[in-house]
Simulated assay, not measured.
Amino acid sequence: MIVGYARVSTTDQDLAVQIAALTAQGCEKIFSEKRSGTNTQRDQLSAAMDFVREGDTLLVTRLDRFARSAHDLHSLVHRLIHNGVGFRCTEQGGVDTTTSSGKLMLSMLGAVAEFETEIRKERQLEGIAAAKARGVYKGRQRATDSSTIRAMLDEGMKPGEVARSLGVSRMTVHRAKLST
């Protein structure tokens, strides 16, 4: 059985292109989710990994949809191979763990993908530093005003209640409480 896995990083992105590509390659079942690849809780990926059986092939469109680091990639692929499951990519045709050259290609592309991620992070940090130097970067806006949190605490609400009612973490409440 060919089983597909599709993932986009944000809820406003569309899975349709990946699902169409996986369907065109003969996937009989497709697991999909909208979750950042850096998030370790990828429920549908876990479900796909648990679903596949010996003789099956897990198919993805690109390696970066499956794993974010070379270590993560090799760990996931090792688990598949250990269970007798093949792994292939539609857009990176040389990646096929059922062949020796495909395994080599997988290692090389995994290293390149990790390198690209690191370069992207460096560029982002450089951009933030430049924006801060120009005075245009203010960081993310606060989730809520500290005075609002302190007022709620002064009214007798417990930190957990304040956090839930404002949709912030308990740590945010404690920081506001300490900033008095």
Score class of each variant (00 low, 15 high):
Arg53Ile: 11
Gly139Tyr: 07
Val60Ile: 03
Asp56Ala: 03
Thr57Trp: 09
Ser32Ala: 15
Arg120Tyr: 05
Arg150Pro: 02
Ala48Met: 05
Ser75His: 12
Asp96Pro: 02
Gly135Ser: 10
Asp154Phe: 09
Phe115Tyr: 15
Leu76Pro: 03
Ser107Phe: 04
Gly135Ala: 09
Lys34Val: 01
Thr99Gln: 03
Ile119Phe: 11
Lys132Gly: 00
Ser75Cys: 06
Ala48Pro: 07
Arg68Ile: 02
Lys103Ile: 04
Glu116Phe: 09
Gly37Lys: 07
Thr90Leu: 08
Val60Ser: 08
Val136Pro: 07
Leu58Val: 05
Cys27Gln: 02
Thr38Asp: 13
Gly37Met: 04
Gly86Ile: 01
Gln44Thr: 05
Ala113Tyr: 00
Thr57Lys: 11
Asp154Pro: 00
Leu76Asp: 06
Arg68Ala: 06
Ala133Tyr: 06
Arg79Glu: 05
Gly102Arg: 06
Glu33Phe: 11
Thr144Trp: 05
Asp43Thr: 15
Ile128Lys: 09
Arg35Tyr: 10
Asp56Arg: 10
Thr90Trp: 07
Ile119Arg: 12
Ile81Trp: 00
Phe115Asn: 05
Arg150Asn: 08
His78Pro: 00
Leu153Thr: 04
Arg142Ser: 15
Leu104Trp: 06
Phe87His: 02
Ile149Ala: 07
Gln41Asn: 15
Cys89Tyr: 09
Cys27Tyr: 11
Ser75Tyr: 14
Gly93Cys: 12
Leu73Glu: 01
Leu73Thr: 00
Leu80Lys: 03
Tyr137Cys: 10
Val85Ala: 08
Ala70Glu: 13
Arg88Lys: 15
Ala151Phe: 04
Gly55Cys: 07
Ile81Leu: 12
Lys34Thr: 02
Arg140His: 12
Arg35Ala: 12
Gln44Ile: 10
